[in-house]
Write a protein that binds this DNA or RNA. Structure first.
Lengths: 147, 147
DNA sequence: ATAGACCTTGACGCTCACGTCAAGGCAAGG
DNA sequence: CCTTGCCTTGACGTGAGCGTCAAGGTCTAT
């Protein structure tokens, strides 16, 4: 499989695959003409990277998983370093959630106060609708209702 | 007040204030020698920007508030555009919270499965502790308990 | 007069994950 | 032979919000 084929299969670009290689995440056998040659393991590796990226992992964060796969493990998270990375990222996500909750409540306060100061909060309909519904707490698993 | 004084008062740097000016957020009277001169209104403006930035606003998002203040309003959010910006940012925060919730639950799943696949999940203590406690849902207003 | 502390503009650096040329080599079909 | 389509390396651009010199002007104290 050449780089264009792998890119197509993985839904990415050749530039991205070469970039992964430059970062030491992906290595390629070379054909006699200098072209990169990939196999199915490489495809799985790219998929692993993409999955982790969708969780907000940086490329550097995916390294333990890549190393794990390349050392022969069936799954990228069959290694201690990968699990520790999961734990660290989970803590980061929790911290981010906490922070966002604070921001959200600050925003709601500000918005409420600003609306209260608005001169005629009744002639709405056109530009200002409160944008506030009864969900005082954050939208645990629901997107904000769209009007 | 010169730029260094304002920077010190606002807890920022002269570079930042000049950058704000380059972005059209802050304007300064010039003294005869070319030095920038600021007043208390400018200080409040910088403070407004800092507050909004702490909510995750980009500099561009602060523009309505800055314009509002400069047009003579007492508060930066005494204008319709500012309120609409609040509403837009609130929606963004909600979307981000929703997304992070998904990521978190995916991460927890992955971590749980990976731990279940680990050979000896009992000889812990050294490197692997589960990092999972009974909070299955996100940490609504509590930071993750540190061990 | 000179050192030191301020100020000025200008310009490059940084992070991250690539996008986007540029200039050229390789292989197959017509 | 020529076009077409793939491939190669290299290098600059992107966005956000500044940090960090560089080279020089200004003001104050000694």
């Amino acid at each position: 499989m050449r780089i264009g084929d792998l890119a197509k299969r993985a839904g990415t670009t050749t530039r991205t695959l070469r970039f992964y290689e430059s970062q030491g995440l992906l290595t390629a056998r070379r054909a006699s003409n200098g072209y990169r040659e990939y196999n199915d393991d490489d495809f799985r590796l790219v998929k692993e990277i993409q999955t982790l990226q969708s969780f907000g992992f940086s490329l550097d964060d995916t390294r333990p998983f890549v190393d794990c796969l390349r050392s022969g493990h069936e799954a990228g998270d069959d290694c201690v370093d990968s699990i520790e990375t999961y734990q660290r990222k989970l803590a980061e996500v929790d911290a981010c959630l906490t922070r966002l909750d604070e921001v959200r409540s600050n925003l709601v306060s500000k918005l409420t106060e600003a609306l209260a100061r608005q001169p005629n909060p009744c002639e709405v309909g056109d530009r200002i609708a409160t944008g506030l519904d009864d969900t005082t707490s954050e939208p645990v698993n629901a997107a904000p209702r769209h009007r």
